[in-house]
């Protein structure tokens, strides 16, 4: 870690971190706000009539009777994944591959800091951003629910659990994005490799949910570790999942850093 580099990274990225964090909370607010208008209505009956596979694929298994489940399905099941995947991938690529592709890495590496230290600082910036966004969403989301729904809003502990595993999921996704960022000289190539892999994971998860015969597909995807509804209900293996995601992510960062420190750079 290098303090001066980290400080500069924060300065140039802070606005981005906050826009994603606050933007997500606003989306969440919108979802919570429309909840009363869809709960206990014909909408629910309509959904019940859908084929079982479709219900599973679109996260409607537990219906839309309670606000926290509605939030888990409609926001954490789709929009959140999209927003965070874009953030994790673009930020990871920006922190290494972008500097290498543009050539600005030449200045950074001309300082008497090892490549390992430089890459570690960049990885730390990425993880810090993910943590900050998770914190904003946990606190902001809970407060927004409280304000809109009144009463107890949504229970804090399960909501925290959901966000914590969400953070670890993107810790791992940002991990392979960072790995690609360290691997490729070309920024676009790093971006497409990370996006493609994420898309493949998502499709595997979706296909697995659609068909019982293809259920095994889900286990090939990183999204298998992330079931918003089970996390809220407390039926997921939270500890195992958390340790698994953290270990996989950490390994990816370390491999990326090692690779970056050993390879030729076109600077």
């Amino acid at each position: 870690m290098n303090a001066a580099l980290f400080a500069t990274n924060l300065k140039t990225n802070m606005k981005n971190f906050f826009s994603y964090g606050i933007g997500s909370v606003l989306y969440l607010a919108m979802i919570i706000w429309i909840f009363p208008s869809v709960s206990n209505t014909d909408m629910e009956k309509l959904i019940r009539q859908m084929p079982k596979n479709l219900i599973e694929a679109f996260n409607f298994t537990s219906g839309i009777s309670s606000a926290d489940h509605f939030v888990a399905n409609e926001f954490y099941g789709l929009l959140y994944l999209l927003i965070m995947a874009i953030f994790a991938i673009t930020t990871a690529v920006k922190l290494i591959a972008h500097h290498v592709d543009r050539g600005s890495m030449a200045f950074i590496l001309a300082a008497p800091q090892s490549r390992v230290k430089v890459a570690l600082t960049q990885a730390a910036t990425l993880v810090f951003g993910l943590l900050l966004i998770a914190a904003i969403m946990t606190v902001g989301g809970w407060l927004v629910a409280l304000a809109i729904l009144g009463g107890d809003g949504i229970p804090f502990a399960p909501f925290f659990r959901l966000n914590a595993i969400g953070f670890l999921l993107f810790y791992a996704i940002a991990g392979y994005a960072f790995f690609f960022s360290c691997l490729f000289n070309d920024e676009k190539r790093a971006l497409s490799a990370a996006s493609l892999l994420t898309l493949v994971f998502y499709v595997l998860d979706l296909v697995g949910r659609l068909s019982d015969r293809l259920d095994w597909c889900r286990h090939l995807s990183v999204f298998a570790a992330y079931r918003p509804q089970d996390l809220l209900d407390g039926t997921a293996h939270v500890a195992v999942t958390a340790i698994g995601l953290f270990a996989a992510g950490t390994a990816l960062y370390l491999i990326g850093i090692a690779l970056f420190s050993k390879r030729d750079l076109p600077l």
Partner: peptide, 21 residues
């Protein structure tokens, strides 16, 4: 080929380089 880190002033860049050194 001169490519500087983006989004900072000249002074911030010099501060970064001095800090890293």
């Amino acid at each position: 080929e001169l490519a500087f880190p983006e989004g900072i002033t000249g002074r911030a860049f010099l501060r970064l380089m001095a800090g890293m050194r």
